[in-house]
């Protein structure tokens, strides 16, 4: 472990996964409250055509243009979901599924088009989608750090507006706040979180980091600020645990290990959280049953009511 921390490459990967987990966790809390938990999954798939198109346009594999392409096609995907649900009777879930599969299909078409035409330096474009956290270098970490900082700052600055958006958008609109704009900002934040997650960790991991820590955090608290911090912490802890486990254990891919770490935190929360956890619920039910089974309780209560 000590030797591991001396390895500069490992330190970059660790820092990257920590930051990624923290920012995704915080954004994920809002996704959960907005009932948009699968948005991350959809956006992660919808980013593929953007990656292909960006490569075709610029001819380079520099992360920045590819990330920009991914962001643009992610935003196009959310626009499509919005358009479909607003202008037809197709429901949001169906629209999300449609955008996910069709955009991904278009992306596969674009990537095969690029591959079969033998563009120079195209190899590895597809690994963009499946993530390569172990191969993160300093520049990637810098990108992730900057974007994560932007995300956290945006959440802090727009905390009140986002809170209103999640709990009572009509009241927010009544206060004169531009709620549709705030919703758009939240979508943009989700897109950013997905885009940095994709490069580091792949589609499924990105989806998981936006859902699992938030759901786990929700078990522990009813208060939004606590939930935000907890969700961020859970995300960061999963990122760190997954990275360390993949470095010390047998050669295993980092992404899935981070997901499993997050799942473990979720399971602990599911069982052990006060009030909402399974243990607390079982205990409450058991006490209630014992109370109800006590024969004198009912009659005494009844007399009290009569007097």
């Amino acid at each position: 472990m000590g030797n591991l921390l001396l390895d500069p490459n490992f330190r970059w990967v660790l820092a990257g996964s920590l930051l990624l987990g923290a920012s995704s966790g915080a954004i994920g809390a809002f996704c959960l409250l907005r009932k948009r938990s699968l948005m991350g999954d959809v956006l992660a798939h919808a980013a593929l055509p953007g990656v292909g198109a960006a490569f075709l346009l610029t001819g380079s594999k520099e992360p920045l243009p590819l990330l920009a392409g991914a962001a643009v096609s992610g935003i196009a995907g959310t626009w499509c979901v919005d358009f479909i649900t607003r202008h037809s009777r197709v429901k949001e879930e169906t629209a999300l599924g449609l955008v996910l599969s069709v955009f991904f299909g278009i992306g596969v078409v674009l990537l095969t088009w690029i591959q079969r035409r033998g563009f120079a330096g195209q190899s590895g474009l597809d690994s963009f989608l499946f993530g390569q956290s172990a191969a993160m270098v300093r520049q990637d970490v810098v990108t992730i750090a900057v974007v994560s900082a932007v995300l956290v700052a945006a959440v802090a600055l727009l905390y009140k507006e986002l809170k209103l958006l999640c709990f009572d958008p009509a009241f927010g609109a009544g206060l004169g706040l531009p709620m549709r704009f705030v919703d758009g900002v939240l979508t943009a934040l989700i897109v950013l979180a997905v885009v940095i997650g994709l490069q580091a960790a792949g589609v499924v991991l990105t989806a998981a980091l936006l859902v699992t820590p938030a759901v786990a955090a929700r078990y522990w608290t009813r208060r939004l600020p606590v939930m935000l911090v907890l969700s961020g912490l859970f995300g960061a802890a999963s990122g760190a645990a997954g990275t360390v486990a993949s470095a010390v254990g047998p050669r295993l891919p980092t992404g899935p290990l981070i997901v499993l770490a997050a799942t473990a935190l979720f399971l602990v929360s599911l069982v052990a959280a006060p009030e909402r956890g399974l243990l607390a619920r079982g205990w409450r039910r058991w006490r209630l049953r014992r109370k109800a089974a006590r024969p004198d309780l009912g009659s005494r209560g009844g007399q009290g009511g009569a007097r």
């Binding site: 959960l32 009932k35 948009r36 938990s37 699968l38 991350g40 999954d41 879930e93 499924v204 991991l205 989806a207 998981a208 936006l210 859902v211 699992t212 938030a214 759901v215 929700r218 295993l252 891919p253 992404g255 899935p256 290990l257 997901v259 499993l260 799942t263 979720f266 599911l270 909402r276 399974l278």
Partner: peptide, 23 residues
Amino acid sequence: RGGVAEDAAVGVTFTAFFALGVV
């Protein structure tokens, strides 16, 4: 039934199964 929104429950479940499958 435990109070997790359906889409969130879907997200938690399939990512966990998939990750375990890949590992």
